[in-house]
Simulated scan of single mutants.
Amino acid sequence: MSTFEVPTVDITPYVAAGTTAEKAAVAAAVDAACREVGFIQITGHGVDPAAADGLASAIDDFFALPLETKKQWVRPAAENRGYTAPKSETLALSLGVQSETRMKDFFEAFNVGSAASDYPDIALLAEHYAENTWPEIAGFRERIDAWREEAGRVARTVVAIFDDALGLLPGTIEALAAHPIEVLRMNNYALPDGTTVELDEDFIGMGEHTDYGIVTILWADQAKGLQVLHGGEWHDVSPADGALLINLGDLTTRLTNEQWLSTLHRVKPPIHVVDGIGTIQRRRSAAYFFDGDAEATVGPLPGFVDDAHPRVYSDVTVDEHIQAKLRGSRAGVVNTDAAREADRVLNALS
Rank of each mutant, 00 (worst) to 15 (best):
I144H: 12
E142Q: 14
D31K: 11
A308N: 05
M103A: 12
G96K: 10
V333P: 00
F107E: 09
A126S: 11
E142I: 02
E136N: 07
T279W: 04
E150G: 07
T19W: 07
T252I: 15
R156Y: 03
G46A: 05
N257A: 12
D221H: 10
A287F: 07
R327W: 13
L176T: 09
P86N: 08
Q98W: 10
E258A: 12
A331H: 10
R282N: 02
F63R: 07
W147Q: 05
A223C: 03
R81W: 03
C34P: 01
Q281W: 05
A52C: 06
D200G: 05
L166V: 04
S314F: 06
A115P: 01
G242V: 04
V267L: 06
Y129C: 06
L191C: 04
P13T: 12
E341K: 01
D241A: 14
T133P: 01
R283F: 06
D202F: 11
N111Q: 11
Q259V: 14
T172D: 02
F107R: 15
P86K: 13
D163W: 13
P120S: 11
R266I: 08
D202P: 00
P180W: 08
A223W: 05
G18Q: 09
I277F: 02
F107W: 05
A64W: 10
V97L: 08
E258H: 01
T195N: 02
Y129D: 01
G231Q: 10
V312E: 14
D307A: 13
W260D: 07
T317R: 07
E108I: 06
V30R: 03
T317Q: 06
T8S: 11
Q98D: 11
L199P: 00
G213W: 04
